[in-house]
Computed example of a mutant assay.
Amino acid sequence: MRAFDLEQKDELEVNVIDFPFLSHNKPIAYGNLLNTAKENLSSMKFIVLLLVLILVFMLAYPLISSIDFFIEIPLSNWVSLDWYPDEEYFGMMVPLAGSLLLVLVTLPLSLLLGWVLSLQLVDSRNSWLNPVSVAVLEVWISLPSVIIGIWAIIEIIPMVRETFGGNGYSLLAAAIGLTIFITPTCTLLFYRSYLTHLDQYQGLESSFQMSTLSRSELFIKSQPTAVIGTINYIFCRIFGETMVVLMVSGNSLQIPGNFLESFRTLTANIALEMSYAGGMHETALFAMASIAIVLIMIVLLVQYKRLINV
């Protein structure tokens, strides 16, 4: 049998190699493989370009829609604490402060709990409990946020009311509900970062015994990119979450003086008022969305610079 054959296909000559030891015993046409690779690359470029265009449109639409607001409304108006759209007072600082307070409370809790749980998953990775735990976390992540919100109303609100007083709809209830919602995602992000560097980790583990604390320190020092990426993702999830916060925060337009007072976030304010807003009121809501986009982009850029320096 010849090692090289020439076949005529579609009036084009391509070089083929016949490997008799292959089970299918079919020649491999390098010309066809090259054409297929080029077609796949072209398709991938088209998909990436399409996704980029969709993302640009999604980000640009609220920015463009809010141009009139930023031109016509003075800065002193929309950076105030007064939100009365019917009287053309568009102070956005109250819902913005609510969103930032929620992030400040929920982000450390989610990171800490996710970190601890991921360490437990690493310790039990050879046990039958590991795949079961991962499956439970993945199902938890896939739950709609409204399910978590309903559960928070049934369980968390009465617990906060009976334990600390007040009506239960508060910053504390929203932080607890959102932490429960976000922690499984944070856990799997940390755990899969461990798995990515599992060979290196096992080599260090076989060299000396490490406690949970020393493993945590090792993770921070050896995988700072994973930590920064997780912080970015969790920050965006918390800042942009609407349904859970909408259901348990009480939605009062005030800056909470303590953890037991109700509040309203930026995204919740947009969701509550967009259905009936019109004119400059609607434009102000698009301006709120623009502020949220700009703030998230600033955080991502700052963290990206930290990634470059790692």
Rank of each mutant, 00 (worst) to 15 (best):
V14K: 15
V16Y: 01
I17V: 13
D18F: 11
P20C: 10
H24N: 15
N25S: 14
P27C: 10
P27Y: 09
I28G: 01
I28D: 06
I28K: 12
I28R: 04
A29S: 11
A29E: 06
A29T: 00
Y30F: 14
G31C: 01
N32L: 09
N32F: 06
L34M: 12
N35H: 07
T36S: 15
T36A: 12
T36V: 11
A37W: 06
K38G: 05
E39I: 11
E39T: 09
N40P: 02
S43D: 09
M44S: 11
K45T: 04
K45E: 06
K45S: 11
F46R: 11
I47A: 04
V48K: 09
V48N: 02
L49F: 13
L50Y: 09
L50C: 11
L51S: 05
L53F: 14
L53W: 07
I54G: 01
I54Y: 10
L55V: 13
L55G: 07
L55H: 07
L55Q: 13
V56E: 00
F57A: 15
M58A: 14
M58R: 10
L59E: 00
L59Q: 04
Y61L: 15
L63S: 13
L63F: 13
I64K: 03
I64A: 14
S65R: 12
D68Q: 11
F69P: 02
P74D: 13
S76N: 09
W78K: 02
V79E: 01
S80Q: 07
S80F: 02
L81P: 02
W83L: 03
W83A: 11
W83C: 07
W83N: 12
P85R: 03
D86A: 13
D86Y: 08
E87M: 08
E88H: 11
E88I: 09
Y89Q: 08
Y89K: 13
F90I: 02
F90L: 05
F90M: 00
G91Q: 07
M92E: 04
M92Y: 01
M92W: 00
V94D: 03
V94L: 02
V94M: 09
P95L: 00
P95F: 02
P95H: 08
P95E: 02
S99T: 15
S99C: 00
L100V: 05
L100C: 03
L101D: 03
L102D: 00
L102I: 03
V103H: 06
L104C: 08
L104N: 07
V105D: 03
V105Y: 05
L107S: 06
L109C: 13
L109H: 04
S110C: 09
S110Y: 01
L113I: 13
W115T: 15
V116N: 00
L117E: 01
L117M: 10
S118R: 11
Q120D: 08
Q120L: 12
V122M: 13
D123G: 02
D123E: 15
S124G: 12
R125C: 05
